[in-house]
Design a protein around this nucleic acid. Structure first.
Lengths: 233, 233
DNA sequence: GTATTGCCTTGACATAGATCAAAGAAAAAG
DNA sequence: CTTTTTCTTTGATCTATGTCAAGGCAATAC
């Protein structure tokens, strides 16, 4: 597939004329990273941003003791690393490929010039950043106001929504990663999954498939209306 | 003071020509809210955004049980409530005045039209949102990877920076609010303040003045390099 | 200016979830 | 294909911080 078609597919660039897509394709630099390879680190100077063409990337923070909090996982068509481009500050977090990933890198200068010329690109980017702020408020709410079972329930709903409203979910990431995304550790996640299974809310077969059995109870859990019974953990 | 001067003072609008400042002053609607009065609620449709002219506003989330997590506190010259303008979604959180506050309200349509015409305004707005994303990553890091003493230490550093690098800090908000901002409760905050005082890191006199005594130790605490001794809490 | 509400602190206690340890299963790497 | 790494689960234990209660003080409100 040629570059210009790949660029036209990126939601951030929807609504741009063929001419500007051509410009973008000129300034984009292709990059391939292996599973586990870092893309940038917190504190690095950011001279451009990235868009995932294929594969997946995690954005995360690390504590001194090595605990990790995943902020986002980005897949096909999603941009990341834009903050330094517009704020002029270093990257606030780390980025690493979860699998073999193809990226386009857009250097800051050329991209900002293009934004100056194309209001619709500016508005698209404003929409992307606004959406991301929305996601962050949800993450903060989860971390601060919900307990781990509630966060997990909310994640399962999100997954179900993402996978066409199905009840049969394919966990797209390992449980280690899911724990990091939910702000907890794999042991706790494992215990809660088995507890939800015992209570008949989900049925977690092996190999990362989870079936939602009692959608209503799962919903109440996600909203904080009920909790898992605290006994025999 | 006339409206156009107040608008010119707002950092978001820096670099705009007199003509566009005039346009903004035409579309801005002034609003005064009392201490404790709500400005918008989570889920409300957002048809415009706000800028604080004087006073202070908190942006917060509430759990079903009534626990509050403050996301931001905005003061003079700071915009808030922009997410719905660009993402087309409802407000993701609540806004309420902490004291008597004067606001300018900018209706969505007119403002977006102006952005289309003025690339520098678009770039300013992108910078504001990017900066906010940066703040959110720090908040998530605090909540997920730091313990309460570390978050408090980081907040005290921020306050000291904000107040000209002084060691003598005026707490600008109540301890109830500070607890909510740090993702904890007033009792815990109170205990940690008295513990830091006992360990000679700060000296918390009455009436919300705090003096930083041992800046180095406070810094290590904020970075997670050390912890408060766990004994006799 | 008095009453009421909210702020702040301290104590006793409860608990969600982290840590440490261990072991089998699955998946990458070579 | 086989070795090594990573994932996943379960148990025992620890701890940071939340909950409940109560009292004094400060600040709004009427």
């Amino acid at each position: 597939m040629d570059r210009i078609k790949q660029i036209a597919y990126i939601p951030l660039f929807h609504g741009l004329s063929q001419e500007y897509l051509q410009d973008l394709s000129t300034i984009a630099i292709e990059q391939v990273v292996k599973r586990g390879e870092g893309i940038f680190s917190e504190g690095d100077e950011g001279k451009g941003f990235y868009v995932v063409i294929s594969g997946r990337v995690k954005i995360f923070k690390l504590s001194l003791e090595g605990k990790e909090q995943i902020l986002h996982i980005f897949g096909q068509g999603e941009p990341f690393g834009e903050v330094p481009v517009f704020a002029g500050t270093p990257f606030p977090a780390n980025a690493e490929a979860l699998e073999k990933t193809r990226l386009f890198y857009f250097p800051r200068e050329a991209f900002v010039d293009l934004i100056r010329k194309t209001p619709s690109l500016a508005l698209n980017m404003l929409a992307v950043l606004s959406h991301r702020l929305h996601q962050f408020t949800a993450l903060v709410e989860d971390l601060s106001l919900k307990e781990v079972p509630g966060r997990l329930a909310a994640y399962l709903f999100y997954l179900s929504y993402k996978q066409k409203g199905n009840d049969d979910l394919a966990l797209e990431i390992t449980k280690v990663q899911l724990a990091s995304l939910l702000g907890t550790i794999p042991e706790t996640l494992s215990r809660i999954l088995s507890k939800m299974t015992k209570e008949g809310i989900i049925s977690a077969d092996t190999h990362g498939r989870i079936r939602i059995v009692d959608r209503e109870t799962l919903g109440k859990l996600a909203q904080g209306e009920i909790r898992l019974s605290q006994s025999n953990f």
